[in-house]
Amino acid sequence: MSSCNADECTGAILEMSRIEKFSKIFSELERCKEDVQKQKILEMNKLIVDMDKEEFETIFTVHSCNKIHKIIREKKLTLVNAIVLLKHIGCCKVLKRIWIDYFEESSLNRRFKKMIIDEKKKKEKDDYFLVDLCECYLVLFDNFSSKLISIRAPCLLKVALNKEKFREIQKEAETALLALSCIAEHQFPEQELHLNEIKEIIKYHQVQHNLTQLAYQSAWQFFINRLYFNENLEEVIVNELHLAEEARKELDELSKCVDWKRKKDVRGKEKKEEIALLRWLQALVVFLSSSKLWNDEFAELIGSIVQVFRFAKDNYEEIGERCINILLKEAFESFYVKVEDFLKEGAFDVLERISQSTLNDEITISCLQFY
């Protein structure tokens, strides 16, 4: 057997053992007492972090969601423990960039909808429980009604507005903002809903640096998504909150934390810095492709994106592709980008090299059309 095939077999064995170990613990949950359940869920959560996309999609299906709902309903799994597990599953789903639309078909989806509405109606509602429910739902499921969003957004923004720098508070704010960032642009009909709060969160961090890098990116993601219904926000984003300058600083800082020399065949969990960097690039693709405003800050941002691409091109394919996607969209689709800025920041050099070396016809055509 060749060394290449041996490596592939070893990887397959490790993958199977991780999936099988998770399945075994999952099957034992309903037969355990609450304290033992909690310990097993912590073990499951560790396994989830190490899973790749394929493993994750193998483990989490409509059947597994329905099974969790069943053992909750039969009181074989406490709701507290279920939320710890489900919130972790949902956060990992978001951070691993996995779209699982079949979760909506599960009985668990219907149960959480009902619990959120019922809790909100109570005269003496449990705010902490409601926040847990809202976070859980937003990170797990991909389609939300405007009614449920109007309940969830205020709860989570209240958590995110806590300005203390304690580690636990920062973690709570990070989860709340990550959940809010999952509300897509077309799922927010109220144009001005909570914009003052999210502006306050962003502005306060720019001075006090109280958020984690992932939390700060998520706050921007939530704000940028609101552009779908309110184009006037672009002026606020560009000239008041200075998106380009902030994004440039974040990309530069995150780039320092990534091991760019990592070998291609090294498999392991992504660091939070890598995830935040990818999320920034995706948000910038959305914003820059439709932006009508351009200033010197954007020129410097293009320079940072070029630099990230040069770091990533050998060993970080997904990051490199997102950088190229931004540069191509700006070069080919935007009427507002200044050509001299592209030239100054080295974007032309990158696009020329890509057009010469790529086997992707679409990229080659886009580069040639731009020139």
Rank of each mutant, 00 (worst) to 15 (best):
D361V: 14
E340T: 07
I89W: 00
W99P: 07
F342Y: 12
E352I: 14
V159G: 01
L327V: 00
S289L: 07
E340D: 14
K329T: 10
H186F: 12
Y137A: 06
D142E: 15
R248Y: 09
I169M: 07
Q191V: 15
L108Y: 00
N225D: 04
G268M: 10
A283E: 13
E273G: 05
C367G: 00
T358G: 07
N315G: 13
V337I: 11
C32Q: 15
V337C: 05
E105D: 15
E253Y: 09
Y137N: 09
T78I: 06
P154R: 00
D349M: 10
E234A: 00
E74K: 12
L284I: 05
D127F: 10
R262Y: 04
H186C: 11
K203N: 12
G303I: 05
Q369A: 14
E246Y: 05
L77V: 02
L277E: 06
I68E: 02
I275S: 01
L180R: 01
E317S: 14
L243T: 05
T61Y: 02
V94Y: 06
S291A: 08
I149E: 03
F129V: 03
E253R: 11
K269L: 06
I363M: 07
Y336I: 14
L95D: 10
N109I: 06
T58W: 04
T212S: 12
G320A: 06
R167Y: 12
E192S: 13
E34G: 06
A215M: 05
G90F: 00
K114Y: 08
W220G: 00
K165Y: 02
N109A: 10
K163V: 11
E168D: 13
I363W: 10
E274K: 01
Q356M: 12
I305L: 01
E297I: 01
L148F: 05
E321T: 05
S145Q: 03
K114D: 11
E119A: 04
L214T: 08
